[in-house]
Each structure stands twice: as structure tokens, then as C-alpha cells.
């Protein structure tokens, strides 16, 4: 057996892995969709699938720091979202216009995000094989 044929199956497997974009578009505490998106992210990580997240529109508010959920009596997902890096999910995007609208800068966000302009969003989304939008 040639050595190249030993490496080929693994290369093939890597190339066949679909990269996934999860779009978080709801504000925190609105419903369970952000928690469900997180669940998908963790499940993908268990299968070694490459996952990125785009926090779109009100979704950027999920990343705002200093949330105070005690009055709402709802679970604050901030610490759960911070755990993404421990699952080797570290590719996060926000839209500049959303950040501007809510006057959020990188310092206000719990994750270190790439900030892109809205007119680049379509091109970004097209780079993914699968887009999940809850």
C-alpha cells in the first residue's frame, strides 16, 4: 500500500465536513431559541463539525455584558455562551450596523467577535454549507 493512500481517507473526511453557520437573531430572554442554538453548537462540537455563529439584529444583545436576569427570573445564558470557546467554537460575527444601533463596542460584548458590515453579510453566509436560523 502506498503511503499516500493511507492519508487520503482522512483528508477526504476532513474535506467532506460541512461547515455550519448558526444565526442568533433573537434578544436574550425572548424565547428559548438562543438556548436551542447553543445546544446545536455544542452537539456539532461533539461531532467535530466546524461551527460559526452570527449574532444578527437583536441577537447582538445576547452578547451584551452585565445582564441582570434576576428580575425576570429567567436563566442568563451569558456563562453558557462563554463556554463555546471550551468547545473550540471561536468564530463569532456581529454586524457593524447592529452594534452601532445599540451603541455596543467590542468591550461591551462577552465574546471576541469579528465585526462585519451588513453589505458583506450575504457573502459571509454563502461561505457556509449549512445555515441554521432559529
Amino acid at each position: 500500500m502506498q503511503s499516500s493512500s493511507l492519508t487520503e481517507p482522512s483528508l477526504l473526511a476532513t474535506n467532506m465536513k460541512k461547515n455550519i453557520l448558526l444565526i442568533v437573531r433573537n434578544p436574550p430572554f425572548a424565547n428559548s431559541s438562543n438556548a436551542e442554538t447553543l445546544d446545536i453548537a455544542f452537539a456539532c462540537a461533539a461531532f467535530d463539525l466546524p461551527v460559526s455563529l452570527l449574532f444578527l439584529n437583536d441577537g447582538i444583545l445576547q452578547l451584551a455584558n452585565n445582564q441582570q436576569s434576576n428580575l425576570l427570573e429567567k436563566k442568563d445564558l451569558t456563562n453558557n455562551f462563554r463556554a463555546l470557546a471550551m468547545y473550540d467554537i471561536e468564530d463569532y460575527f456581529v454586524i457593524a450596523e447592529d452594534a452601532q444601533r445599540y451603541q455596543l463596542t467590542q468591550n461591551d460584548l462577552i465574546l471576541n467577535c469579528k465585526i462585519i458590515n451588513k453589505d458583506k453579510m450575504a457573502a459571509l453566509i454563502r461561505t457556509f454549507d449549512t445555515v441554521i436560523n432559529l
Binding site: N79, R82, A83, M86, Y87, D88
Partner: peptide, 16 residues
């Protein structure tokens, strides 16, 4: 890990 992230880690994050 649970104190910091409020969830029980799966294998990968536990290893990390």
C-alpha cells in the same frame, strides 16, 4: 467548570 460556565462539560471541554 460548572461554577464558571453553568453547565456540565462534555468530553472536549473537560479535556481542555
Amino acid at each position: 467548570f460548572y461554577q464558571e460556565y453553568q453547565l456540565s462539560p462534555a468530553m472536549r471541554p473537560l479535556v481542555k
